[in-house]
Design a protein around this nucleic acid. Sequence first.
DNA 1: TATTGAGTCGTGTTATTTCACGATGCAATG
DNA 2: CATTGCATCGTGAAATAACACGACTCAATA
Lengths: 218, 218
Amino acid sequence: MPRPASQDLTSAQERVARALADFERAERPGFIADLLKALRLAAESSLTPTLQKMARNGFVDILGGGAQGRSRVVRLTVKGRHALGIGGLPLLGSIPAGPLSEAVAQAAEIIEPGALLPHRPGDFLLRVRGESMIGDAILDGDLVLLRPGVAVPHKAIAAVCVGDDREGTLKRVFYENGGERVRLRASNPLFKDMTVAAERVHFAGLLKGVLRHVGSRK
Amino acid sequence: MPRPASQDLTSAQERVARALADFERAERPGFIADLLKALRLAAESSLTPTLQKMARNGFVDILGGGAQGRSRVVRLTVKGRHALGIGGLPLLGSIPAGPLSEAVAQAAEIIEPGALLPHRPGDFLLRVRGESMIGDAILDGDLVLLRPGVAVPHKAIAAVCVGDDREGTLKRVFYENGGERVRLRASNPLFKDMTVAAERVHFAGLLKGVLRHVGSRK
DNA sequence: TATTGAGTCGTGTTATTTCACGATGCAATG
DNA sequence: CATTGCATCGTGAAATAACACGACTCAATA
C-alpha cells in the first residue's frame, strides 16, 4: 500500500474517525478517555500523536487542553466526516449513473442538515392548509418558513392577516397607489384578488422557504 | 417576584442558559472552566449547584464527570433552548396574530434544524433543472431529497435513468404489464409519456422531499 | 418576623488528565 | 538493506477539575 497522501486517512486515523462518528451519532462529546476505551488503546500517548496529525490535516478539531489537567474534547470536522463518506447531504451535480460512492466523491457540495433551510432566530414554520397557493407550487400540507419583522417586497409572498382576521393566509403582495393600498393575490385562479388599505394589513412573515415531505417520514 | 415553577428558569439559571447558547452558537463545547469565565464566577462551586438543578429539571445535560479530575461538559437540551425561546423552528398552529413570543409558547412543535428533512445515510440532494415536474409543484431550482436503493412504489416520483442516459430526470413511475414495462410521466403536460422495458430503467433514487429557498439565502 | 430556597464564595482532598520523553514493532519506500 | 514515518506502549511530573463541606447574602414566602 502506498503511503497515503495528507488528504486521505491512514487506517488508524480512519479507525479514530469512525469512533468519533459513533460518538457524534450518540450525541456524546469525544472525551479522550472515552475514545481510548472505544478504541481499546492502553495509553493516552498511543492516541495523541495520531490525533495531532489529524488535527493538522483538518480532519478533527481538538478543543480544550493546552495545559496539563485540562481535558480535551475531539470532534470531527466537516472535512473529516466527508473523508468517511458520512454526514451531511451530498448535493450532486447530476443523477448518479455509476456507483454511488463515486458520485458522492464528486459532490459539488456537502450540506449539513442544519444548513438545509437557512433561518434566523424568530423565524417560524407554518403548515399550509388548502390549495390557495397551488399556482406557486405550494401544496396542502407543505411547511413554509416565514420570517417576521422584515419588509415585504413588491410581488413577494407573505403570510398576511387582514383586519381582525386571526387565521391569516399566504398571499402574494402587490403595492398600489404608492403604497396606500395592498392587493393580495392567491395564486390559485379560483380565488379572487383582494384589495385593502395598507393599514389594515398585518404581515405575519415573509416567505423564505418551502419544505415538503413525500411519502412516509424517515 | 414569585418563586418560579420548575418549568421556568430562575434569573441565574437563565444567565447560565444564555451563556450555554452562546457556546453553542460558537460551536464550542461547554466546559465548566469556560463557563465560569463567561459568567465571571469566582469558583466552580458557585456554578455546580445551579447546574445540578438545571439538569434535574431537564434544561441541560451534564456529560462526563462522575469522578474527580474528569471534566464535565454541559449542553443545553431541547427543553432548555425552548425555555430561552431560541433554537429550533417553532411549528405554529396558525399565523400568529398577536405578539410573537406568545405564539411561540403555544407552538405545536419545536423542530430542530437537523430534523427538518429526515434523511438516512446514502440519501442525496439534486438540484432540479427545468420545468418538467411543475405539475407536481417542483420548480426549476428546487432541491429534491432522493433515497437510492429502495423500492419505487407504483405512481411514486423517482429519479430515473433510461438505458445509457447519464443525466436522468425526475419522473412519476407507473408499472404496466405486471411490472414488465414502466411508464414514465413528467407532470408537465408538455412532455409526453415514455414507456420502456423494466430492465432498461435504473432508479437512482426515490423522491422523499422537496426544498425551496425563496429570495436571497440567509 | 421567621423560614425557606437559591445563589454565591472559600477551602481542602483526591483522582485524573495532559504533557514530554524515550523505546519498540511494523510497513512501505528508496 | 537502510531509512522514513506511523502507530503503539510505558513512565514520571505538573496541573487541574470534580467533589464535599460549611458559611454567607438575598429574595420571596408563610
